[in-house]
Design a protein around this nucleic acid. Structure first.
Length: 283
DNA sequence: TATGAATCCCAGTTTACGTCA
DNA sequence: CATGACGTAAACTGGGATTCA
């Protein structure tokens, strides 16, 4: 596919901002995509504060852990079990663990459910070193794939979705949330890079156009100085810029001023403007 | 209506881990 | 094989915005 940089320039410049900022997710605080903020069923209003230390996460969930999460079975667990069992098949390689013995400041995140999960995970990680340096979780391929799939469906999660996904992947909701935050950041970064490249191309196109116009202007000025008025009309048409839409040089036309052709160097230039989508708009 | 708590998201940063020369 | 540089991604931090009691 060949990009029409002129059109790109038109669009981008007329918008003034890269698409990243004009399409979605920007300022979501004002325009939330989901009703998650209103989902009172999921919100834990009591939200007790805990000054606790995390100790987790076995990437390879135990059956017990799965069954204990939330204390009740979930529909999602059918599929998750399959996935998880798949992980177990490849477990010894993909098994990962995550620990954080640093005091977690984000106490507000810790809802009752999450604390319950943490207990489960802590239990699973009891045999790990307690005081060692923080270990970083590496998500398994399966976990990453599921998260990616979920992200394709919706780039933000409501609490239910978060909890469901966390249960399915045997991660803490906080981990799912962090993954989505980082994923959104990566997406935005990529889009910014793309926009940057397009703007660079656009800039080059405009520079080239500017050079051409300057050159044309110099030629016209030179002719104007060198030739008396009658020859003024003998400028080759090819050197003039025409509006690609109406294909007129401008003004002139028949009628009373037919002998008085107005060229592009007037007070109202009639060049094709790269800043407008519709060339005729400049007419 | 004002206010504080809870929660969300984002931007920026830190840090653990994997890869490669 | 050991090592340091580097990139990536998970996790953290601080702050703004929103909702709700």
């Amino acid at each position: 596919m060949v990009l029409d940089t002129t059109n790109i320039c038109n669009t981008r410049l007329s918008l003034g901002l890269p698409s990243t900022f004009t399409t979605k997710n920007h300022n979501q605080n004002h325009l939330p995509q989901f009703d998650d903020h209103h989902d009172q069923d999921v919100k834990n209003k009591s939200s007790p504060k805990f000054d606790h230390h995390f100790s987790l996460t076995l990437g390879l969930p135990s059956e017990q852990a799965i069954n204990n999460i939330d204390g009740h079975p979930k529909g999602d667990h059918q599929s998750s079990s399959n996935i998880i069992h798949g992980q177990q098949a490849a477990s010894s390689v993909s098994a990962v663990s995550s620990f954080s013995n640093s005091s977690v400041k984000r106490e507000r995140e810790v809802s009752g459910e999450e604390v319950e999960e943490d207990r489960v995970y802590s239990k699973n990680c009891e045999d790990q070193d307690e005081e060692g340096p923080r270990k970083k979780l590496r998500l398994t391929k399966e976990q990453s794939l599921i998260l990616e799939d979920s992200f394709k469906e919706h780039s933000t999660l409501n609490p239910k979705q978060k909890q469901s996904l966390a249960n399915r992947l045997n991660l803490r909701p906080r981990q799912v949330e962090v993954w989505f935050q980082n994923r959104r950041a990566r997406t935005k970064l990529k889009q910014t890079e793309v926009d940057c490249e397009l703007l660079k191309k656009c800039c080059e196109t405009l520079k080239e156009e500017n050079r051409r116009l300057h050159k044309e202007l110099q030629e016209i000025k030179a002719m104007k100085l060198a030739a008396p008025p009658p020859l003024y009309m003998q400028i080759p048409a090819a050197t003039l810029s025409m509006c690609p839409s109406c294909e007129r040089i401008s003004g002139g036309g028949g009628g009373e001023n037919s002998s008085k052709i107005s060229f592009s160097i007037g007070p109202k230039p009639h060049f094709y403007s790269p800043f407008t989508n519709h060339p005729s708009a400049a007419c």
